[in-house]
Design a protein around this nucleic acid. Structure first.
Length: 589
RNA sequence: CGGGACGUAGCGCAGCCUGGUAGCGCACUUGCUUGGGGUGCAAGGGGUCGCGAGUUCAAAUCUCGCCGUCCCGACCA
């Protein structure tokens, strides 16, 4: 029997001053966690119980599709050099040296280790598919740990890796994970969204994130109220309201107009009496590229055109340039390439590259929203002048069209046309078709049906264990505390003995606890010699979804059941208490 | 890494400007009291004032350096 009086549950009346988000404040106050350093937390009794329950659910569901491994956190440098990530990841990886001076790192994820096992052991398509997973601690030297458990440097992650003989197989493995993740998060009682995600510069064809809406989140999620469209900001698109192009003046040839001192889009639009929608936003960038002949890294000029009222999205730009690094062009570089001051750049009169391949000519990327539009207004590449009648594909020729803009709230859903909303959210899971990146670079090969050597195709799939807890707390809290879904709460029921001096109350509390435990419930008995008010406050704080108040009414065989989420109270006969909770199962809210 | 703030008892804070006995609330210990929403009274315990140098007769307080934590930004396979 779990007696509060014998346990270590250090609740606090006040939250630490440096806690900002609700989950951080409450998990500390409820005695779940204590901070050891920036982004490093200890889990105490209640916190550990909860993460164990979460891991239990994850394990049960993952075991239906895969096999659990236990892998080293300490990894030798060589392995990570093979995949290229030793240098690619940079400062975000914890590195150390052993006594002999050999370089090691602490596992960031486990693609390398899993692929190493695969390449040493897998020989034939007959051994595929394989799904291997682990639930272990990951280390990341985050530049800025923050928000309690949301962004930390050491955390538990369930990560899984699939190996298939072909893309069709990967589709199956991916779908299995998708369904398993839905079951896991359903069982954890979370209200989550599955969103299309940016696959990153690492390649990979498909990727979805499982996210939970909360103001504490760091991801921006675009979602449709009507249909199930949802996507990461880095990936989201929208249907734009039609824009009627400006009518050409005269013969429609490019026409310079004097715009003295008008630099910003808004200034110029107002000055000329047009909407920013008819303006071109011109962004000059430098992009890192490699010279084919010399192999040297060099900078290349890149100009982006967006509609005047649109915002450029860096992740989309990164995708458009194949993951190469970009940065804004400096003023002196603008002079060099365009002989134009900032604020007056435009696409006319410049020899743009014909394709995105290596070329010494600057590239012109035009946002898809501008495709087909005519008579736009942009800079004239000279101070105090803009140009009317600019038409992409007409009087200037883009190197390519690409999706470069960020969606804004209220634009139309690309599926159904209903308005889109934008929320912050916490990422709790991510599934990812990796492709051949690791199997190729690390030399994993199996023989296919025809005896031909091929690289297996991989997927990787992660779940942040603590983030499930954090998201659940963020989702269900008030100023007095929080309540967890029964499936992941440290206890399902707390029995509050309101008067420890009253023998009838005391023994009834014990009986009820014993009964419920016998029926398989996780019960915490608050038998402390405290005033009822103190116990009620603590019970409200610590995340347990149900409370039984045992008080004066024991003489009438009655106790009070309080549902933490709604604070609804209900009198229940002691003799019927087990049946009462059994009826709530398994669909406890 | 850039900008800002903070570091005094377990937690929350005052004291610092203007140098001189380290203080308050909660928590903790003991006794009494109370017993359905952090009960009341009384008596106690607990501090290298983040660390190190310097200035001074004297430093929590002034100066310099370091360390740590938080917030904004950059970053985020």
């Amino acid at each position: 029997m779990h007696r509060w009086s014998q346990l270590f549950i250090p609740t606090l009346r006040e939250a630490p001053a440096d806690a900002e988000v609700a989950s951080h404040k409450l998990l500390v106050r409820a005695g779940y966690i204590r901070q050891l350093g920036a982004g490093i937390y200890s889990f105490l009794f209640l916190g550990n119980r909860t993460t164990q329950k979460i891991m239990g659910i994850v394990r049960e569901e993952m075991d239906k599709i895969g096999q659990e491994f236990y892998l080293p956190a300490l990894n030798p440098r060589g392995l990570w050099e093979e995949s290229g990530r030793w240098s690619l990841i940079g400062e975000n990886m914890f590195r150390l040296k052993d006594r002999k001076g050999a370089d090691l790192c602490l596992g960031f994820t486990h693609e390398e280790v899993m692929t190493d096992i695969a390449r040493k052991e897998l020989r034939s398509y007959k051994q595929l598919p394989q799904i291997w997973y682990q639930i272990q601690t990951k280390f990341r030297d985050e530049p800025r740990p923050k928000s309690g458990l949301l962004r930390v440097r050491q955390f538990i992650m369930k990560d899984a890796y699939s190996f298939d003989i072909d893309a069709a197989g990967l589709d199956v493995s991916y779908a299995k994970h998708h369904d398993t993740y839905c079951r896991i998060f359903d069982r954890c009682g979370l209200k989550y969204m599955v969103i299309d995600a940016h696959s990153g510069a690492m390649g990979g064809s498909q990727s979805q994130e499982f996210t939970v809406r909360t103001p504490a989140g760091e991801d921006l999620v675009v979602s449709c109220e009507k249909c199930n469209y949802a996507a990461n900001m880095e990936k989201a698109t929208s249907r734009l309201a039609p824009v009627e192009d400006l009518k050409p003046e005269g013969d429609g040839a490019p026409l310079e107009v004097h715009t003295p001192g008008q630099k910003t889009i808004e200034d110029v639009a107002r000055f000329l009496g047009v909407s920013p929608k008819h303006m071109l936003k011109t962004l000059a960038m430098m992009v890192a590229g490699e010279d084919v002949k010399t192999g040297k890294t060099e900078q290349r000029a890149l100009v982006l055109l967006l509609r005047g009222d649109h915002q450029m999205n860096e992740a989309k730009l990164s995708t458009a340039v194949g993951g190469r690094e970009t940065r804004p062009m400096r003023e002196d570089e603008m002079q060099e390439f365009f002989h134009s001051p900032a604020g007056y750049l435009g696409p006319l009169g410049i020899g743009w590259a014909e394709d995105m391949g290596v070329s010494i000519k600057p590239a012109l990327l035009v946002d898809e929203a501008l495709e087909g539009h005519t008579n736009l207004i942009g800079g004239a590449n000279k101070e105090n002048y803009h140009v009317k009648h600019l038409t992409p594909g007409g009087n200037f020729h883009p190197t390519a069209y690409a999706d470069l803009r960020s969606v804004t709230a209220g634009e139309d859903c690309p599926n159904c046309g209903a308005p889109l909303r934008i929320d912050t959210a916490v990422e709790i899971g991510h599934i990812f078709k990796l492709g051949y990146k690791y199997s190729e670079s690390m030399g994993a090969r199996v023989l296919d049906r025809n005896g031909k050597e091929v690289a297996p195709i991989m997927g990787s799939y992660g779940i942040g264990i603590e983030r499930i807890l954090t998201a659940a707390v963020e989702q269900s809290n008030d100023e007095n505390g929080f309540w967890l879904p029964p499936s992941i709460a440290p206890f399902e029921v707390v029995v509050v003995s309101t008067n420890s001096k009253d023998e009838a109350v005391r023994s009834a509390s014990e009986d009820i606890t014993r009964q419920l435990e016998a029926a398989g419930f996780d019960v915490l008995l608050d038998d402390r010699d405290e005033r009822p008010g103190v116990k009620f406050k603590d019970a409200d704080l610590v995340g347990i979804p149900f409370r039984i108040n045992v008080g004066k009414k024991v003489t009438e065989d009655t106790v009070e059941v309080v549902r933490r989420s709604t604070l609804e109270r209900e009198d229940v006969k002691i003799s019927a208490i087990t049946a009462y909770f059994q009826k709530l199962r398994p669909g406890l809210p």
